[in-house]
């Protein structure tokens, strides 16, 4: 997925860019008026800046689809698997508790879901999050450098 935006600020190897509208995903969407991606509200995105773009530059960005899909599968897949596992464990352990099998299944499901949430949270905290950020792949207009030179 590619898009265009303007660099607002830079910090280390990341940059904040302003996008008028996520053109690929939002332009023809019927729900644009109810979400933040409409024309009036400009969104701010944090992106990786391997080309060292400066503030004011117009840039093209790309979201790494494969990594993004893998992260989504990991996130939702593990939460779903944990829920099913928790329900099964709760059902199996139900004779040990003074509760009905449905109640133990429900609490088992909740417990495993929360546990999976904590494990995922730790996993994403440890892992370098930067690999999921969109990447600047081209500087369309080098306005930032131009402004710097003009100012000198």
């Amino acid at each position: 997925m590619k898009d265009k935006g303007w660099v607002v600020s830079t910090k280390n190897d990341l940059a904040q860019i302003e996008v008028a509208c996520l053109t690929d995903s939002c332009q023809k969407c019927a729900a644009r008026n109810i979400c933040a991606g409409n024309n009036q509200s400009k969104g701010l995105l944090t992106v990786k800046n391997p080309l060292n773009a400066d503030s004011g530059d117009e840039v093209e960005i790309e979201i790494p689809d494969t990594k993004y899909n893998m992260a989504l599968i990991l996130l939702f897949g593990s939460l779903l698997a944990a829920s099913l596992l928790g329900m099964g464990v709760g059902y199996v352990l139900s004779p040990l508790f003074p509760l009905s099998s449905q109640e133990t299944s429900f609490f088992g499901l909740l417990f495993f879901l929360i546990l999976a949430g904590i494990i995922l949270w730790r996993h994403f905290q440890k892992k370098n999050k930067a690999h999921l950020y969109p990447v600047i792949i081209d500087i369309i207009k080098n306005e930032g450098s131009y402004n710097k030179k003009g100012g000198q």
């Binding site: 729900a31 109810i34 993004y68 989504l72 949270w121 999050k129 999921l132």
Partner: peptide, 23 residues
């Protein structure tokens, strides 16, 4: 909230889909 907390870039990329689910 959970996705925003654990992975801001994922939340950023998923932004539009989550509100759509409500409706």
């Amino acid at each position: 909230m959970f996705i925003r907390k654990i992975s801001p870039p994922l939340y950023q990329a998923m932004g539009i889909y989550l509100p759509l689910i409500t409706t």
